[in-house]
């Protein structure tokens, strides 16, 4: 299985994989650090290459366009959030272990995304950084009862366990109100 995977990956000539470590966060810590969070639908996805100084090659960034409502104040908005990693085409790009899986960022998915503006994510690339990369994006689904459930990612993540969106919003808004005070 491993060799099959290696062979498959090797077909992506000239491409590289990118692995990382991310900050360990609780929900209060996440709310403390971010500019905002959105619950909404992924409308678009694009990848950009950015040259690094001193001839050190390129970095690749993926940007998602998400339309929905702020988790912190319910205001309607459309935001762009970015993370390191992505492929321009089959031969050029970088896959980053911290990026959400391809399935998580499929266009049409409804997600909760935590983000913070960064004037330089590397190579001078400025954008709303998806905070902690995959650790800042959580998929949702609607239960049979009609509740929107946010899917947790386990210990170490801001949303560790599955919870109802309204409950998460309530917690986040209370934390944000305390932060503002």
């Amino acid at each position: 299985m491993t060799s099959v995977l290696a062979t498959a990956l090797s077909l992506v000539l000239g491409s590289a994989l990118c692995w990382a470590s991310i900050e360990k966060l609780t929900l209060p810590q996440m709310v403390q650090r971010i500019d905002n969070a959105i619950y909404g639908e992924i409308l678009a996805k694009r990848v950009e290459a950015v040259a690094l100084p001193d001839g050190s090659g390129e970095m690749f960034f993926t940007t998602l366009t998400i339309k929905g409502n702020s988790v912190l104040n319910n205001a309607a908005s459309t935001v762009e959030v970015s993370y390191p990693g992505g492929f321009l085409d089959e031969e050029h790009g970088v896959f980053n272990s911290e990026e959400p899986s391809a399935d998580d960022v499929r266009i049409g998915n409804r997600v909760v995304a935590f983000y913070k503006w960064s004037p330089d994510m590397g190579g001078g690339f400025a954008s709303n950084a998806l905070y902690a990369s995959h650790g800042g994006l959580f998929r949702t689904f609607v239960s049979r009862k009609g509740e929107t459930i946010v899917q947790g990612r386990g210990p170490g993540y801001a949303v560790a366990t599955n919870q109802v969106l309204s409950g998460l919003e309530k917690q986040a808004q209370e934390l944000y109100a305390k932060r503002k005070r």
Partner: peptide, 28 residues
Amino acid sequence: SAGQVGDNTHSELTGCAGGVLAFTQSFV
């Protein structure tokens, strides 16, 4: 210098990507 992917180096990168601490790029 930081070199290219494949030069097997460690270095600091100017900037910040939210809660990402560090990352490693590798040829597959």
